[in-house]
Computed example of a mutant assay.
Amino acid sequence: MVRYLIYLPANLVFVWLSYLLSPLLAGLSLVTGPRLPGSLQWFSTLDVDLDGGISQGVKGYRADLTGWRLWWQRTCWICRNPAHGWQSELLGMPAFGTIIAQQWISEDPKQEFYLLQTARGAGFFCFKRDQPLFGKVHLKIWLGWVNKAYDGRNHHYAFQIAPKRS
């Protein structure tokens, strides 16, 4: 828990930088392709490129866009997944040999809590909750480190509180 709190300020800086730089990064991607060059990819997701919304079937993401519309879609993708590369590579916990020591899952409301342990014995946690607000709108809350290593190498640091429609 202490490690999580120590990393929080750095995470907030990386997320805000991702938001601020997203139009420039998306513009660069129109020249370099859907994967940002080098460590700039750390401002987005490591497991998919800037067109990941298409391959993942995210509502509203389309494969037939060009120009300004493609730029806007990629800007939105960076803002939807801000700083995931930083959260994985710099603030993440190694996936190799990590075990789930304990888990609790409930359905009403949908909530998950995991205690995990790296191969070297370092403990970390994952908390996910869909907090009902009204109608089909929930507040998606993810804290800790994500229980699944999306890039196959690290459990990325998570601090996400965002509205979600179900």
Score class of each variant (00 low, 15 high):
Tyr150Ala: 11
Lys136Arg: 14
His138Ile: 05
Ala10Val: 11
Asn154Ser: 14
Lys128Met: 12
Gly67Glu: 14
Gly52Ser: 02
Phe43Ala: 05
Leu91Cys: 04
Val15Lys: 01
His138Cys: 03
Leu143Lys: 11
Leu65Asp: 09
Asp130Met: 11
Pro109Phe: 04
Ala10Tyr: 11
Cys79Val: 06
Gln117Met: 12
Trp42Phe: 09
Asp151Ser: 13
Phe134Lys: 13
Gly92Ser: 12
Phe113His: 09
Thr66Arg: 08
Leu70Lys: 07
Leu46Phe: 07
Trp72Gly: 09
Lys140Asp: 15
Gly67Asn: 10
Val146Ser: 01
Ser166His: 15
Lys164Gly: 10
Ser55Pro: 00
Ser55Leu: 10
Leu8Gln: 01
Arg120Trp: 01
Gln41Met: 02
Ser39Tyr: 08
Lys128Tyr: 14
Gln56His: 07
Leu50Arg: 04
Ala10Glu: 02
Leu20Glu: 06
Gly97Thr: 00
Gly152Lys: 09
Asn81Ala: 14
Arg120Ala: 08
Phe124Trp: 14
His84Phe: 13
Gly38Asn: 13
Gly144Arg: 02
Ala10Asn: 03
Trp77Lys: 09
Trp71Gln: 06
Ala158Glu: 08
Thr75Pro: 00
Ala119Gly: 00
Leu65Glu: 06
Phe127Tyr: 14
Trp142Met: 09
Arg3His: 07
Thr66Pro: 01
Asp64Asn: 11
Trp142Glu: 14
Ala119Pro: 00
Leu46Val: 08
Ala101Gln: 11
Ile54Ala: 09
Leu116Lys: 14
Leu91Ile: 05
Arg129Ala: 12
Arg74Asn: 07
Pro23Asp: 15
Gly53Met: 05
Leu5Ile: 05
Phe43Cys: 08
Pro109Asp: 07
Leu21Asn: 04
Lys164Trp: 15
Ser55Arg: 08
Phe43Gln: 04
Lys164Phe: 14
Trp77Thr: 08
Pro9Asn: 06
Lys136Gln: 11
Ser22Pro: 02
Leu133Gly: 03
Trp72Tyr: 15
Arg62Glu: 14
Tyr157Ala: 01
Pro94Gly: 12
Pro37Asn: 11
Ile141Pro: 04
Arg74Met: 04
Gln87Gly: 05
Leu133Asp: 07
Gln73Arg: 06
